[in-house]
Deep mutational scan, measured.
Amino acid sequence: RTAFSSEQLARLKREFNENRYLTERRRQQLSSELGLNEAQIKIWFQNKRA
C-alpha cells in the first residue's frame, strides 16, 4: 500500500477534479513530477472513481 504525501494527494485530487481519466502521456508526466510510478497513479484514479 502506498503512503502518499499531502503534496502528492493535493496534486492528484486537483488533477482528478480537472479530468477523471488520465491519458497515458499525462500519467507519465504526473509519475515523473510526483516521484510515483505509473501504476500507483493509475490505481489511485481507479479507486477514486469507484
Rank of each mutant, 00 (worst) to 15 (best):
E15W: 03
L34V: 04
S6L: 09
Q40T: 12
K42W: 13
E24C: 10
E7K: 06
L9I: 12
E24K: 15
R26Q: 11
K42L: 14
S5Y: 02
R25Y: 11
K13T: 15
K48G: 06
R49K: 06
T23W: 04
N17Y: 09
R27C: 15
R25H: 12
L9R: 05
L22P: 15
I41G: 00
K42F: 12
R14T: 11
R14N: 08
Y21T: 08
R27G: 10
N47L: 13
R26E: 06
A39C: 15
Q29L: 10
A50E: 11
Y21I: 10
T2I: 12
Q46A: 11
E38H: 04
R14H: 12
Q28W: 06
Q28R: 11
Q29A: 11
K48S: 13
S6V: 11
L36Q: 01
W44Y: 09
W44G: 01
Q40A: 14
T2E: 13
F4T: 03
L9T: 06
F4N: 02
S5E: 04
Q8E: 04
F4A: 04
N37I: 06
R49N: 13
S5D: 07
E7M: 06
S32G: 07
E24G: 09
E15N: 01
G35T: 03
R11N: 04
E7H: 07
Q40W: 11
F45S: 00
L22V: 05
R1V: 13
A50S: 08
A10I: 08
N19A: 04
E38W: 05
A10P: 00
R25T: 14
T2K: 10
T2F: 12
L30W: 00
S5Q: 04
R27E: 07
S31A: 14
L22A: 03
L36W: 02
N37F: 07
Q8M: 05
N19H: 09
T2Q: 12
L30E: 00
L12V: 01
E24L: 08
R11V: 12
F45K: 00
L12Q: 00
R11I: 12
A10T: 08
A50K: 14
R1K: 14
E7S: 07
K48R: 13
L9Q: 06
E7W: 09
K13W: 15
Y21D: 08
Y21K: 05
L22I: 09
E33P: 00
F16G: 01
S32A: 14
S6N: 10
T23G: 08
A39K: 11
R26V: 07
G35R: 05
R25C: 09
L34Q: 01
Y21Q: 07
S5L: 04
G35I: 02
R26F: 04
R25Q: 14
R11L: 06
R49L: 14
E15A: 11
A50W: 09
I43C: 13
F16M: 02
Q28K: 14
N47R: 11
Y21E: 08
I41D: 01
A50V: 09
R1S: 12
A3I: 11
N47I: 12
E18S: 07
Q46N: 07
A50F: 08
L34C: 02
G35V: 03
S32M: 15
F45M: 02
S32N: 10
E38G: 06
Q40P: 02
E18M: 09
F45W: 15
R1G: 14
R49V: 10
N47Y: 12
Q28L: 10
R25P: 08
T2W: 10
T23Q: 04
K48Y: 14
R49G: 07
F45T: 00
R20I: 09
E33C: 04
F4L: 13
S31Q: 05
A39E: 15
Q40I: 15
R14K: 13
N19K: 04
R11H: 05
R49H: 08
K48E: 15
N37V: 06
R1E: 15
L30H: 01
Q46S: 09
N19F: 05
Q28P: 01
L9V: 08
N37G: 11
N37S: 15
K48W: 10
F4I: 12
L22N: 02
N17A: 14
A10N: 08
I41Y: 01
R27S: 15
Q28F: 07
N19S: 07
L12Y: 00
R27L: 15
I43R: 12
S6K: 14
R1C: 15
R27N: 09
E24M: 09
K13Y: 13
Q40N: 05
Q29W: 08
R49Y: 07
L30Q: 01
R11W: 04
L12A: 00
L9A: 04
N37D: 15
Q8L: 04
T2N: 12
R27T: 15
E33Q: 05
L22D: 10
L22F: 03
E38P: 11
E38Y: 04
F45N: 00
N17R: 10
R26N: 05
N17T: 08
I41L: 07
E33W: 03
R49C: 10
I43S: 10
R25W: 08
S6E: 14
N19G: 05
T2L: 13
L30Y: 01
W44T: 00
Q29Y: 07
R27K: 11
L22T: 03
R14G: 05
L9Y: 05
L30F: 01
I41R: 00
R20T: 06
Q29F: 07
T23D: 13
F16C: 03
E33K: 03
E15Q: 03
L9K: 06
E24R: 14
